[in-house]
Write a protein that binds this DNA or RNA. Structure first.
Lengths: 232, 232
DNA sequence: ATCTCATTTCGGCGGGTACCGAACGGTCGC
DNA sequence: GCGACCGTTCGGTACCCGCCGAAATGAGAT
């Protein structure tokens, strides 16, 4: 009805620990089956079904049915964005427990990972910092790709200029990194750059999680493109 | 405990219609008493007290006790930011009902209003567009104040350069306008600029709400500073 | 001191919902 | 076709939480 009840309805979707855990798991950007999410969150399959219904009805998730499987996925970058913002708000309060938290999070995850569709962790922050230092990103007056940055992406990096023009999603956006407490590059540019990293095998996934590892090729590429001496 | 339960706890704060309405009312950036919020949301005072406790404990609100009154306020720009993002997510789904919504929202509110601590509505969007057109803001590669924009704020506009350097809050940030469906300027620059508008009586509040009206002085200032012909 | 008024605490009621297990319905592989 | 597997539907239970009114608290005002 009114705007308050809409806001409450949206918040209610995430107000349950199981649904929240599902969304956080889906933050890796990939599609999960209903059963996988049931196991991940530790509830019965029937319970997971109900939760997924609500999340899909609420527009946070989309489904794709394939044979006897039902794959669900975040509905888009804006949902991932929202979840990141909410998670970021949690961090400051947990800051005092930094030592413990740092130990709880795997070293690989802190070193590098994907954050929905872009790079995060020390790797993501290092790339962002190097781009800023090279005048490709402007972080002093907000967060934006400079003209030089656009030229760099379409030139040396070799991205198609067309894929960088995409509707209303911003070209560059800062995303607060929850392990580094620093911003890293998100938005269309972040997503396409991440894609490029995978396509060129500059990074590879570690196991089945969202952690990634920089390859030797990747290190060389970062040196050539950004003058990054060595990460980690 | 884990990150999912923290996220759920945060979302639960907004998952109640009464608490959501309180937060939306507080989005005007001002401090309200507990009683005022009880009336605004239509619940008993005792109920309002309980809700405010939860919102304060959760870190979304801060209180300031003054005599027998208890004033509450949003805990800061980051909370306002979060509420804006959540509200923005609601809009696309309500877009089809645009005609009806437009009628329901007062014309004054659509013309100009405050959004926590910066300008919004047609006025806010017009200022943002004029700044972008003049090369003071960069919206093509994200959302950032340009060097020229910084010089403009500290020069012609007359802002103190020191107040523009403030901790981790970004200098410029885009905030989605829920009546105009366009971005307007937020962040430190947006807040200080809005302050200037009030200090110079370029805008004045209409009644007790969050709607504002551009004065004759304000129109002249916009013409001089940004070459804006006439708004509305 | 006494009155007034904003706010808070407490007990209790009622509704919403997360959860599970069991039964059911598709889909795939043999 | 038959078993194995994934997902869904359907009771039924337990619990949480929002709500109110009445009584209590605390800070001005007279």
């Amino acid at each position: 009805m009114n705007s308050a009840s809409d806001l409450a309805a949206l918040a209610a979707l995430l107000a349950d620990e199981t649904r929240a855990a599902m969304c956080l798991a889906l933050l890796d950007g990939r599609a999960w089956t209903a059963g996988e999410l049931a196991i991940q969150t530790g509830v019965a399959r029937s319970t997971a079904t109900e939760h997924l219904h609500r999340l899909i009805d609420g527009g946070l998730l989309v489904e794709r049915r394939q044979g006897r499987h039902r794959y669900v996925q975040l509905a888009g970058p804006s949902v991932a964005n929202l979840l990141e913002d909410l998670s970021a708000r949690l961090e400051p309060r947990q800051a005092p427990a930094r030592g413990l938290r740092a130990a709880a999070v795997s070293a690989a995850l802190r070193r590098g990972r994907t954050c929905y569709d872009h790079l995060a962790g020390r790797l993501g922050v290092a790339v962002t910092d190097a781009m800023t230092g090279a005048g490709l990103l402007d972080q002093t007056g907000g967060f934006a790709l400079t003209a030089a940055g656009l030229a760099w992406l379409t030139g040396p990096v070799g991205l198609d200029p067309d894929v960088l023009r995409f509707g209303k999603r911003p070209l560059a956006r800062g995303c607060l990194d929850w392990t580094e407490r620093r911003q890293h590059l998100a938005g269309v540019a972040g997503a396409r750059l991440c894609e490029k990293f995978f396509d060129n095998s500059w990074v590879v996934r570690i196991g089945s999680g969202r952690a990634v590892r920089l390859t030797l090729n990747g290190k060389a590429a970062l040196r050539d493109l950004l003058g990054v001496p060595d990460i980690d």
